[in-house]
Amino acid sequence: MSAFQTALGNEYAAVYGYGVLAVRLTGAQRTAAQNAYDTHRARRDILIGWIEAQGDKPVAAAPAYTIPFPVNTAADATRLATQLEERLGASYADVVQASDGDVRRTGVEWLTDAAVRAVRWRGTSVPFPGLPERD
């Protein structure tokens, strides 16, 4: 599977996941989750466009995605959001590696976005976002 297709699959999962987790949050965190949901929907659509421009067929969204643990509390919600952003970060690190020019630039921006969101959900930093084998 290409880097774009993997990223698209993770964006689908992120849109789904934020939909599940946002309802467990309140105030600024709720707003942040809703903003992330909107951002990931937009990126999903951009990725679909890129994949189609390559002459490939974008992977389809699943009707639902596995949530790895029950999301009943705000702590569950931020933990899930962290995982979603970490997976997206890994996807975009792969996009950076597999591309050049403007696409690579976008990959850097989206990897950075994912890393920053993960820091805010997690409350701590990591040395190598997107490269879990190094962390």
């Binding site: 699959g9 995605y65 596995t66 949530i67 997976r87």
Partner: peptide, 13 residues
Amino acid sequence: LLTVTGVALVGAC
């Protein structure tokens, strides 16, 4: 807990 097709959330990338 919704568990249908575990496509991208678990073990993707």
